[in-house]
Simulated assay, not measured.
Amino acid sequence: MSYIVVLLFSLGVCVVHCGRHTLQYDISLVSSYSHSVPHYTITAYIDGLQYGRYDSATRRGQVLIPSMVIPSRSTHLKHMLLQIEFAQKQEVAEKQKMESLMGFLNKTHGNGEFHVFQRKFACELHKDGTISGYDEIAFDGKELMTFDRERVVHVPVTQEALAMTQLWNRNYDYAKINKLYMENDCIENMKMYLLYVSTDLERKVLPKVKVSSSESDSGADLHCSVYGFYPRDVEVKWIKNGRDEIHSEEAAQILPNPDGTYQIRVSVGVTPEGGANYSCHIDHSSLENPMVVPFVSNRRSISQIKIPIMAAFFLIFLALGMLTRMRRNKGSESSQESLSSEEENPEPFA
Rank of each mutant, 00 (worst) to 15 (best):
F313E: 12
I302V: 14
N111E: 10
H284Q: 05
Q90D: 07
L201T: 01
P272E: 12
L162E: 15
Y227F: 00
L8K: 15
L287K: 02
V236Y: 02
L222F: 03
Q166T: 10
K120L: 11
L7S: 13
L180H: 13
Q88L: 13
N289P: 08
V209N: 01
C18I: 08
I305M: 11
M98K: 05
Y262L: 05
T75N: 14
S285W: 05
L29I: 12
D173H: 06
V69K: 15
L105P: 03
K210N: 04
D26Q: 10
K240N: 07
K208D: 01
L105E: 05
M326Y: 12
T165V: 09
I70Y: 08
K330I: 10
E215I: 07
S132E: 01
M145D: 09
F86W: 14
M182H: 04
V209D: 00
L222Y: 00
M326H: 12
E273W: 06
T324L: 15
T146G: 09
L315D: 12
V37I: 11
I307Q: 10
E347R: 11
T41V: 11
V13I: 10
Q253N: 13
I309T: 12
A319K: 11
K210R: 06
V153D: 00
S74F: 13
Q159E: 14
E342M: 11
G19S: 04
I137K: 00
E143K: 13
N106K: 09
V296D: 00
V155Q: 05
S32Y: 05
G275A: 02
E250M: 08
G141C: 00
H154F: 13
Y181W: 11
L323K: 15
M80R: 10
D283Y: 03
E202Q: 10
K208A: 01
F121S: 08
Y227D: 02
D244S: 15
T271Q: 09
K95Q: 05
V266G: 00
N257G: 00
A350P: 15
K210G: 01
D244Y: 11
L105T: 04
R151A: 10
H154E: 09
A350G: 13
P290H: 08
S225A: 00
Y174A: 09
I302K: 14
G228L: 04
G141E: 07
L23Q: 05
A175H: 01
S34K: 13
L23E: 03
V116D: 06
N171S: 11
V69W: 14
A57R: 14
A312L: 13
G331E: 12
A138D: 05
T199L: 14
T58E: 14
K78A: 12
E215K: 05
A175K: 00
K176V: 08
G103K: 08
G112A: 07
L7N: 13
G19H: 06
L255D: 03
T130S: 08
F86C: 12
M291P: 02
Q90F: 07
A350D: 15
E91S: 07
S279N: 08
V157T: 10
Q62N: 13
S303E: 06
L49P: 05
V205R: 07
V5N: 14
G129R: 02
L206M: 08
R53I: 14
N277V: 15
S34Y: 10
